[in-house]
Write a protein that binds this DNA or RNA. Structure first.
Lengths: 351, 351
DNA sequence: CTGAAAGCGCTAACAC
DNA sequence: GTGTTAGCGCTTTCAG
């Protein structure tokens, strides 16, 4: 590999390195003529600037890091696409710190905090370790939170209350008077907020909220946002027998998968016997024809980068919290669509 | 943020910067005493080395980049976990270039090739642009291919022939004499190899291979590895009427999803009427109870990094191609499990 | 406009 | 052992 430096160019073009630097960085005040000559030589020599020499001299890294839990799966992958697209348009590099378990959060954050390494951080879907907050603040490193919130930093998230309200309302407007909820553990903020939205929807339709109609299941992996928990919760509902609601708002699509499995195994059909609305719109949801609340993941990623860049260029900017409204995606699981085909599930046809 | 440099430390500790550098880099030949003192001061001043100054001086980036198609979704996410875990153990940074469409491949590759930027590249699941090969070779930048192959570079991939053979054999051993295949476009190497394995399996069981029993569908997005193509292919089979095979090897899980939908919509049940075996073991497969060939994705990621690091430290090393054997995961879609046992519980199906 | 020179912060070769 | 001195390759004053 040619190890061409600006000195080589300077020599060849018969100018000083300062001038070379100027034309390469599109600075003003260089004669069109010399500019042309330098550019010409640079191309001929196949010059490439050395990334780290630039970063050192410019005192900025032109890179952004993302600390992201791998286990959120589809959500993160979609958001990441938005992040990636925007970031590369802006000419930044993305260094990824994927977190497989909570212990890695601190390690990775520390690395990202290494002096000069990154110009900004995106922190995803996890609660920010308290001990880090202080370090972060006096490191003065711009950071924006995605899918999680803290008063100290900018954030991009989803309107959970509103989304749950819309989901529940949809079921109500379909004529259901008894709507249950399969929720995740209340230690999780999204779970809490979605419960709120569910409850509000009920009440503003003149229906009394009842604790007995909200179940969580015991599997607490990922705060209950998992398939088993959904399965277990629905099993409990099924045990209620005839009193069981015929419509459910489930706090995540992945739980809805479990819930539907439980239903199917008990000979209950979706949506003929039971209507389901989920939350997230993971890829699975489309295949399963699940009605659900979609989060604008790609846009969230794009905005996250834009917000971060904005803060980088103006650290004194007021802290901004943006929430996106999820959209109701009507498919078949809620029964709103009249369909002769039913749900294309392997199991639903086996019985 | 404290902008502490080794000069500050040197002054405070009453030594030269050389000495400071030595103790910080755990070099030999420093009196235990001064070593202790320097470390002490460094900690007190909360010193952090400047990443890019180090990289410039050391002439190595301690970072690896991955160029990876986002659209392979689940596969890539799993592999990435292995990559991430191993990479951070080794103390490297991962810069990610996610590709959303083919045009980005070259852009991203060029960026990764920027002088000094990375010590090595991981290139995933896509065919390497010819024009790049040359540049890559004389950039002398170590690169390993994952899930794709080229004679010029190390690679980690999956034994497609073998996997397809195993899948087909499984169906054959279940008693099926007529086994069809839903394949992807033959322009894709994996598709070609999987066809080979299918054919070999047939022939070594004394069954004549027939072209009429292999269908692809017309949707050519991602070389036919998509849901619609699977759906279309299966529709064609269904039109065969009574001559239609009752068992199918499908070249990817995502196609299998489409195929199953087509079957279900025609009133055919899986596995009672038709047996299906897929390939990949994406997350969806578990939920759909799809029998399939699992690729050891996490390990592939780990090995990819190890291979890359090996090559970085020894560029003259002979080029190595490693193929992993996929494992047959028996679930319900193939009919091997007796349905009289009832539906397995959700939990028992978890990995 | 442009050349020379002084850093950016660290590593490493070289004397003492 | 340890201080000194060159770089690493580029950006950015500062004179002219």
């Amino acid at each position: 590999m040619a190890k061409v430096t600006i000195y080589d160019i300077a020599r060849e073009a018969g100018v000083g390195i300062g001038t070379v630097s100027r034309v390469l960085n599109n600075h003003t005040s260089v004669t069109p003529e010399t500019r042309k000559r330098v550019k010409e030589v640079a191309r001929r020599l196949n010059y490439q600037p050395h990334t780290y020499a630039q970063r050192l001299a410019r005192r900025q890294s032109e890179t952004i890091s993302a600390i992201i839990p791998f286990f959120t799966n589809y959500f993160f992958i979609e958001v990441l696409q938005g992040v990636q697209d925007r970031i590369s348009q802006l000419g930044y590099d993305l260094v990824l710190y994927g977190v497989n378990n909570v212990d890695q959060v601190e390690t990775h954050l520390s690395r990202a905090l290494q002096r000069g390494k990154v110009d900004g951080i995106l922190f995803f879907s996890m609660k920010l370790p308290e001990k880090i907050v202080a370090r972060l603040r006096d490191a003065k490193l711009p950071m924006v939170l995605v899918d999680t919130v803290s008063p100290d930093f900018d954030s991009i998230s989803v309107a959970n209350v509103e989304g749950a309200y819309a989901a529940t309302t949809h079921l109500l407007e379909l004529g259901h008077r008894s709507v249950g909820m399969v929720n995740a553990q209340l230690v999780s903020t999204p779970a809490l907020e979605r419960l709120q939205g569910y409850r509000h929807a009920l009440e503003s339709h003149g229906i009394t909220y009842s604790e007995g109609l909200v179940k969580t299941g015991s599997s607490n992996k990922q705060d209950g946002f998992n398939r088993e928990a959904g399965y277990e919760a629905m099993e409990e509902f099924i045990e209620m027998g005839p009193d069981m609601p015929r419509a459910f708002f489930v706090s995540s699509d992945i739980q809805a998968m479990g819930a539907i499995a439980a239903l199917t195994e008990s000979g209950l059909r979706v949506p003929e016997d039971v209507a389901i609305v989920g939350f997230d719109d993971i890829e699975l949801a489309r295949h399963m024809r699940l009605t659900t609340m979609r989060q604008p993941m790609y846009q969230m990623g794009v905005l996250a980068i834009e917000r971060l860049v904005a803060r980088m260029s103006n650290p004194e900017m007021e802290i901004l919290h943006t929430t996106f409204s999820p959209t109701l995606i009507v498919r078949e699981s809620c029964g709103a669509l009249r369909s002769s085909e039913g749900m294309p599930s392997v199991k639903s046809k086996q019985r």
